[in-house]
């Protein structure tokens, strides 16, 4: 891997002078590349590192016991916590994942098991990839038109559906990828025992790919936990505990962070930083867990 890999020094009778072995132009180009890529890495590390440091710094400052026990304060009032937003975010995320998991796993199963080679499966796979990176604000607009406008009110259900639409493509993609890793011989063995395709899929293929599928679900969780844009027009926010039917605005961390960070009140901004740290830590933790799972899957 040494860049100065010596060229057979045929010229100048094998002179040991380095400059004659590698033309200066080549050496300069090589040095430039090394320096440039090292610089790029350092700039990236410093900037991204400073974001994390700042987040921890400001977030820890805002941490307190009240954070987890009290609801968000009204404008101008002192103290308060973000307990209602934490709970609301949990509920929205659970709704999102509960809707997205069956749909995503089944759609992924279709793509990997039933739809092999079919035109329809190719189209769906392509559209799923597009949906995977579609701007989330458009999904917010869609759910607004689909649910909020007809129902006449913002609701937790609409927020959950918006999150489900974002989570589904992630689950479809990982499920399909993981099912494809399962060797065909396993399916053949199942089929040879007389098991119908559904039985083969449920008790052989799924089981063999289970760690991978769970990884997909965790990744989808990490993805939707911090989504803000689609919640702006669906779940909105609320400064108090919500009603159990989830109608009206439902407090949630991302929108709370957005509104509080842009507010003029010091304690609101502090709560926003604390919420931001909480959410980022959760997401990083989920991503790490997903990575451990996927390593298990690959190792098998």
């Amino acid at each position: 891997m040494d860049a100065m890999t010596p060229i057979p020094a045929t010229q100048a009778g094998g002179s040991p002078v380095r400059a004659s072995r590698v033309r200066p132009g080549r050496r300069v180009a090589d040095r430039m590349l090394r320096i440039a890529s090292l610089l790029a890495t350092m700039v990236g590390a410093v900037v991204l590192g400073s974001i994390l440091v700042m987040l921890i710094w400001k977030g820890v400052e805002g941490f307190s016991f009240a954070l987890f026990t009290q609801p968000t304060p009204g404008p101008g009032s002192e103290g308060g916590g973000i307990a209602n937003a934490i709970l609301g975010s949990l509920i929205l995320t659970v709704i999102g994942i509960a809707v997205a998991t069956p749909v995503g796993v089944m759609a992924g199963t279709y793509l990997a098991e039933y739809g092999r080679g079919s035109r329809l499966a190719d189209v769906i796979r392509f559209l799923n990839d597009i949906l995977l990176s579609a701007p989330s604000i458009l999904i917010g607009l869609f759910v607004y038109t689909l649910m909020v406008r007809p129902m006449g009110t913002y609701s937790g259900w609409a927020g959950g559906v918006a999150l489900a639409i974002i989570a589904t493509p992630v689950i479809v993609r990982t499920t399909e990828d993981m099912l494809r890793l399962v060797p065909g011989t396993l399916r053949e063995a199942g089929a040879a025992l007389g098991a119908p395709p559904s039985k083969v899929i449920m008790s052989v293929t799924w089981r063999a790919a289970s760690a991978g599928i769970v990884t997909g679900i965790i990744l989808a969780l990490a993805r939707i936990a911090g989504e803000t844009a689609p919640l702006l027009f669906t779940a909105l926010n609320n400064n108090s505990w919500f009603s159990p039917d989830l109608m009206g605005g439902v407090a949630n961390l991302p929108v709370m962070i957005y509104q509080f960070a842009l507010s003029p009140y010091g304690n609101w901004q502090g709560l926003a930083w604390a919420g931001a740290l909480l959410i980022t830590a959760t997401i990083l933790l989920l991503s790490i867990v997903a990575r451990v799972f996927i390593r298990d899957q690959r190792a098998r």
């Binding site: 974001i51 987040l55 990490a222 911090g226 991302p254 931001a276 959410i279 980022t280």
Partner: peptide, 11 residues
């Protein structure tokens, strides 16, 4: 890459 975009906005 998994850090939510709102964090970048706040920073």
């Amino acid at each position: 890459a998994a850090v939510p975009s709102i964090i970048y906005g706040m920073w």
